Computed example of a mutant assay.
Amino acid sequence: MDESEIRGRLEALRIEHRDLDAAIDALLGTSTADQLQVARLKKRKLKLRDEIAMFEDQLIPDIIA
């Protein structure tokens, strides 16, 4: 992947991460929050965070000291 593809993928992942955050907040705001679904969304959110970190690392050049 070239840098522009990585940046595009990063933006898509960040948007999905924000959307999941909003969905989790909405679920927790209801009186009948499904804890299993909340747990699944949180797990997906953590996986996205790992993917975001991986792509961010690819954008940072290796510096040999």
Score class of each variant (00 low, 15 high):
M1A: 14
M1L: 11
D2V: 06
D2C: 05
D2P: 06
D2Q: 08
E3Q: 13
E3K: 14
E3L: 10
E3N: 11
S4I: 09
E5K: 15
E5Q: 15
E5R: 15
E5V: 14
I6M: 10
R7P: 01
R7K: 14
G8L: 10
R9V: 05
R9M: 07
R9Y: 04
L10I: 02
L10V: 01
L10K: 00
L10P: 00
E11S: 15
E11C: 08
E11F: 10
A12L: 14
L13P: 00
R14T: 02
R14S: 02
R14F: 01
I15Q: 07
E16F: 00
H17A: 03
H17M: 08
R18Y: 05
R18W: 09
R18N: 13
L20Q: 00
L20A: 02
L20M: 07
D21W: 12
A22Q: 05
A22P: 01
A22C: 03
I24W: 03
A26E: 10
L27S: 04
L27G: 05
L28W: 04
T30I: 13
T30C: 13
T30S: 14
T30E: 13
T30V: 12
T30F: 09
T30D: 12
S31R: 12
S31Y: 07
T32I: 09
T32M: 11
A33G: 08
A33P: 01
A33Y: 04
A33N: 08
D34G: 09
D34N: 15
Q35N: 14
Q35V: 15
L36K: 12
V38S: 07
A39M: 07
A39C: 04
A39T: 07
R40E: 14
R40I: 04
L41R: 08
L41T: 03
L41N: 06
L41Y: 10
K43C: 04
K43E: 11
R44T: 07
R44N: 04
L46Y: 08
L46V: 11
R49T: 05
R49E: 10
R49K: 10
D50K: 10
E51Q: 12
I52L: 02
I52N: 00
I52H: 01
A53P: 03
A53W: 04
M54I: 09
M54N: 13
M54S: 11
M54Y: 12
F55W: 09
F55A: 02
F55R: 05
E56G: 00
E56Q: 09
E56C: 01
E56S: 00
D57I: 04
D57T: 13
Q58C: 07
Q58H: 10
L59D: 00
I60R: 10
I60S: 06
P61T: 02
P61S: 08
I63W: 15
I64K: 12
I64E: 10
A65S: 06
A65P: 13
